[in-house]
């Protein structure tokens, strides 16, 4: 058994854009270092400085936060940030792969790429979260997650710095949960121990 504990979930994926740094501080900041699932994050943050966002969040949060490396095996209690200018994918063997394929939804990394590959890899064992952001990245991916039996979470658009990403996601599917950002850490904890 390669999965941790007896829970039905094996990983969390998150897509976030405008307002992402603050949102991730709140979300990851609400989790303990012992959080039992790996977390994979695509954030559209205009940053040439590789590793910048990961270092900032790692200082701020209890969970370990790092920029994802190629062929890295995902482990619980760790959040992996997609490197700037690369797509991040989850393979069926639980390893991260990167690609420089063209931008999707004008974005590289793209949340759709992460969500779709993670849905393939984890099926019903996946929790996918769409947070604040401009544009519509993550919507198609969220649909793929739902189709594979995964659990979908969308930040309440009224509560988001930029509402179009969560609005678009909630228009494509009926998410399992729509809630304010502040309540999402609690939900992720509850689901993880289910």
């Amino acid at each position: 058994m390669d999965r941790k504990g007896n829970g039905r979930f094996r990983a969390v994926v998150i897509g976030v854009s405008t307002g992402g740094v603050e949102a991730l501080k709140i979300l990851l900041g609400g989790l303990q270092a012992s959080y039992p699932l790996p977390i994979l994050i695509v954030a559209h943050i205009a940053s040439e400085a590789s590793n910048g966002l990961a270092l900032l969040l790692d200082d701020f949060c209890s969970v370990r936060v790092k920029e994802a490396d190629e062929l890295e095996e995902i482990v619980p209690g760790t959040a992996y940030i997609a490197p700037p200018n690369y797509h991040m994918q989850l393979e069926r063997d639980g390893k991260i792969t990167l690609s420089v394929d063209p931008p999707v939804n004008f974005a590289r990394p793209s949340a759709d790429v992460l969500f779709e590959t993670a849905a393939d890899a984890m099926g019903a064992g996946l929790i996918a979260v769409v947070l604040t952001g401009a544009g519509s990245d993550g919507s198609i991916g969220l649909k793929a997650v739902a189709a594979k039996g995964g659990t979908t979470v969308v930040q309440c658009p009224m509560n988001a710095v930029a509402d179009s990403m969560p609005k678009s996601a909630a228009a494509v599917i009926k998410p399992d949960y729509v809630m304010p950002l502040e309540r999402i850490p609690e939900l992720l904890i509850q689901l993880a121990w289910e």
Partner: peptide, 9 residues
């Protein structure tokens, strides 16, 4: 070839 990229393509 890594599966995720190949399948997407």
């Amino acid at each position: 070839y890594s599966e995720a990229s190949l399948k997407r393509r």
